[in-house]
Design a binder for these strands. Structure first.
Length: 567
RNA sequence: GCCCGGGUAGCUCAGUCUGGAUAGAGCACUUCCCUCCUAAGGAAGGGGUCGCAGGUUCGAAUCCUGCCUCGGGCGCCA
């Protein structure tokens, strides 16, 4: 479409005998207000050369444009602007047909034959998931879906941080005070059961500072393969992982490939030594192997300890190689908090220098912190918002709302309330630009009105309700001119494909969330100003309603939000 | 000190990449609208030195420079 506009302008400029600006394409903008058309050309830049006012130039150019092609309804001047109006009826016809044909695939690109590996949520097995993990999971799952919609085959990989001194702390506390109980005895979700001992450890540590040392000793025993410690570790890890699995399922994320730190933490040494031989790394006087990244302003970074053991980055280098060996992806994305930005800059640089992979294939998707109104979440201070608790709290609020409206069977109440709660939560976590820190206010932030997930679901449910009550579907007749709200709805639907592409390009699900909201808003306005069932244009309006339903469903799906037919 | 992000309405955020037409939402506040497709909705209203100062440009919330301020990072931790 834009190409047609460019040609029209080019031809007019030639007739005026003006040189066509090289960047003409970027000079054509999309007006913010649809009443100013769908494309616009501002004539300011020509004023100097032509020695005429931009208004006059606009008028002159418009005259040279003659009649627009059928894709456009009209071309108008508005002061110094020339505004191009799409033929909205034609656009509506085409879109309605395309949406019908493609259904759930509307907005998705053709398969690219490219693979993307995305790493998330990568929890530690010493305590349950918290609000930060929910943001991680919401983003990871959404980016996965957005990548799929952009034609990628996606592998969701999860690195379980299942070893280390923090894990030993939970284990030590259990050994000391657990009395051999199990989560079943305690009637508690198993990862929470494990987490309780992590908290217990922190409490006891205040009274007895020797515990710190003891946890270090336990780690050494674990590394030495002490059978008793390994058995304890296996038992508690299984509890933690089993609990996570339940939360993943409830929250609606899937994982294609599980990696475990315990299986890779010793690896990577050979790669580092190889790099040393090639002269990419240096051996420092104290024996540590380092890389100098001064030219990238990243300083010097240790890659292998002087005693020859691995550190975090060593195993991450190894894991990167494993992932490339396992899947040979075209892109590899890591979803983590932005406090790890430095680590990933170094990691990517090392991988690139080693020739293990191309830097362009690597992407660190760093999201901002989730803060509470009174500051940062701190697990030691017990100010962490637990993921499972949060979900069930919101769900009970939704249940109350639902019960106030209608009497539902227990199963339906459970199902519907869960979908609504997750939409509230996911939308809330995704609507903010990924890179930004966000404030989570439990009382105020999770509301069901206005710019929220439930608002979008409500709009969908209303559209569904219209479709159910529609009865017979008369032939589609187009009026002389579409109503404002009809046209607006069509134009908004028309933006979806661009949103899908932009969301991937910028790795930002917020674009989709904001779009879903805006689309819902436009539909609600349409709904209020244009009666559907009781209209001579019932056929057309039913088509518009159904198209809206499909596109909103597709948009929400990219956020991992499931629609419901009845609210 | 250096590096990376933020600073837009009372609050939470869009818009900044790719400069243009009166800077947009939601919440909160003041009014309306359920005889009519679900009021978790719609309509109207008040509320802004777009952190500050320069610069580039016909035109700057948007680009450049400096400064202020908030958060994060700069471990042989993960």
């Amino acid at each position: 479409m834009k190409q047609i506009v460019i040609e029209i302008i080019e031809n007019a400029l030639k007739e005026l005998d003006v040189s066509v600006p090289e960047n003409l394409s970027t000079l054509i903008e999309t007006p913010k207000d649809y009443t100013n058309g769908d494309f616009a050309f501002a004539c300011f830049s020509l004023a100097k050369e032509l020695k005429k006012s931009p208004q006059q130039i606009a008028t002159d150019l418009r005259e040279l444009m003659h009649n627009p092609p059928e894709e456009f309804e009209e071309i108008q001047t508005s002061g110094p602007y020339i505004n191009f109006y799409l033929n909205r009826k034609l656009l509506a016809q085409n879109l309605i047909q395309e949406i019908k044909d493609k259904g759930n695939d509307f907005g998705s690109a053709e398969a690219l034959n490219k693979k993307l590996v995305i790493e998330f949520p990568s929890p530690n097995t010493n305590k349950p998931l918290h609000l930060g993990h929910l943001r991680n999971m919401a983003i990871g799952e959404s980016i996965s879906r957005i990548a799929q919609a952009n034609g990628y085959e996606v592998v969701r990989a999860n690195l379980n941080n299942d070893r280390g001194v923090h894990i030993c702390k939970s284990m030590l506390a259990y050994q000391r005070w657990g009395e051999g109980k199990t989560p079943i005895d305690a009637e508690e979700k198993s990862d929470h059961f494990v987490g309780d001992f992590y908290v217990k450890f922190a409490e006891e540590l205040k009274k007895d500072s020797k515990l710190e040392e003891e946890s270090q000793e336990m780690l050494k025993k674990w590394e030495a393969g002490d059978s008793e410690i390994i058995a304890l570790w296996k038992k508690m890890n299984a509890w933690a992982l089993d609990g996570f699995k339940q939360t993943y399922k409830k929250f609606g994320i899937t994982i294609d490939k599980e990696y475990f730190e315990s299986q890779i933490y010793k690896e990577g040494k050979d790669i580092i030594l190889g790099g040393l031989e090639k002269g990419i790394f240096q051996k420092r006087e104290d024996g540590a192997i380092v890389i100098n990244l001064e030219d990238e302003k990243l300083g010097e970074k240790v890659l292998l300890r002087s005693d020859g053991t691995s550190i975090y980055i060593t195993q991450d280098i190894y894991l990167a190689k494993v992932k490339f060996d396992d899947f040979n992806p075209d892109e590899s994305v890591y979803v983590t908090g932005n406090e790890q930005e430095y680590h990933f800059k170094v990691l990517f640089s090392v991988l690139d220098k080693l020739g293990l992979t191309d830097k362009e294939k690597l992407k660190h998707l760093a999201y901002g912190m989730v803060n509470l109104p009174n500051g940062r979440m701190k697990s030691r201070e017990g100010t962490v918002v637990d993921a499972d608790d949060l979900i069930s709290e919101i769900q009970s609020l939704v249940k109350k709302e639902l019960e106030a409206r209608d009497t539902l069977e227990e199963k339906e109440l459970e199902n519907r309330s869960l979908k609504i709660s997750l939409s509230a939560l996911k939308y809330f976590l995704l609507k903010v630009d990924v890179k930004r820190d966000m404030v989570f206010n439990p009382e105020e932030s999770i509301s069901f009105e206005g710019d929220t997930g439930p608002y979008c679901q409500y709009s969908y449910a209303r559209a569904s309700s219209i479709m159910r009550k529609a009865g017979e579907k008369p032939e589609v007749i187009y009026p002389e001119e579409l109503e404002d709200k009809e046209a607006e709805l069509i134009l908004k639907i028309n933006e979806f494909k661009k949103v899908v592409a932009d969301a991937y390009r910028t790795m930002n699900p917020a674009l989709v969330a904001n779009y879903a909201y805006k689309l819902s808003q436009v539909f609600n306005e349409f709904y209020h100003s244009c009666s559907v069932i009781d209209s001579i244009y019932k056929g057309l309006r039913l088509e518009l309603t159904d198209s809206f339903r499909q596109v909103l469903k597709n948009a929400l799906n990219l956020l991992g939000i499931q629609v419901i037919e009845v609210m």
